[in-house]
């Protein structure tokens, strides 16, 4: 019996040679039902074309580095099974809304800058000395931010967000969800420091609630919810008497 195969159409872009990206097709053996798109790319790189560039690391949906557009949908390539697409060809492109450096590798500089801008660390007015023991939290206090702490920085939400696609100044879904994660951490006292970035016109108010960020998020972070709730909270801080308190 002839070997089962599948066609991968991958974006190729060599910044030293190409004026614009183009597609290249690879027909590869589809030998195992558990194969994912990342396996197919690894097969191409090992056996067919070693020049194909892409990012990956953990192969298990944890590191967040293998995000790509797979048949036009933002996905982790290590979680997209070939069996869900076979026998049709699979179109693999770099994440939308980001500049392409080479092939499937995007420039994540803007995302990194946005993450840093919301100060994603615990801010204290006075540090608690290490010797004083753990800073305990109840389950309810942890539940307040746990969902928003699941983010793996895969940038799928940015690639699915048309608002970010149209205006790169928008702080974006993951950064705002992460700001909410720290603002709702009972150990944190930095909400006021994050507010100017979050309550800004390019912060929560740029979002018009398309909601696709939450659809594509592989970790159930629901950044759209984080943004809408932050809109309500920042407004209440403004209108409720003494709302701007720490």
């Amino acid at each position: 019996m002839a070997e089962k195969t599948i066609t991968i159409q991958a974006t190729r872009f060599d910044p030293d040679k190409d004026a614009r990206p183009h597609l290249q097709s690879y027909e590869i053996p589809f030998i195992d039902e558990s194969m994912v798109v990342l396996d197919a790319l690894n097969y191409i790189k090992t056996h067919v074309d070693g020049s194909l560039s892409y990012r990956w690391s953990c192969r298990m949906g944890i590191c967040g580095s293998c995000g790509m557009m797979i048949n036009g949908q933002s996905k982790l390539s290590c979680s997209a099974f070939l069996r869900d697409y076979w026998p049709k060809p699979i179109l693999v492109e770099p994440l939308n809304n980001f500049p392409i450096i080479r092939d499937l590798v995007i420039d994540m500089e803007d995302f990194m800058h946005k993450l840093k801008s919301i100060k994603p660390w615990i801010i204290r007015k006075t540090e608690i000395p290490l010797g004083s023991g753990e800073h305990r939290q109840t389950n309810a206090q942890i539940d307040d931010f746990r969902q928003f702490s699941e983010c793996i920085n895969c940038m799928l939400c940015y690639s699915a967000c048309p608002v970010y696609g149209l205006n790169n100044e928008f702080r974006g879904p993951a950064a705002i969800a992460l700001a909410r994660r720290y603002n709702h951490d009972s150990r944190d006292e930095g909400t006021k420091e994050r507010l100017p970035v979050i309550a800004d016109a390019e912060g929560v108010w740029e979002c018009s609630f398309v909601g696709e960020c939450s659809v594509v998020c592989p970790k159930g972070v629901d950044p759209a919810k984080a943004i809408q709730q932050s809109k309500l909270d920042t407004s209440l801080r403004f209108v409720v008497p003494f709302g701007n308190r720490e």
Binding site: F13, P15, N97, I100, P162, G165
Partner: peptide, 8 residues
């Protein structure tokens, strides 16, 4: 780096 930026 020379990058390629796709527009919406």
């Amino acid at each position: 780096t020379r990058v390629y930026r796709k527009t919406m």
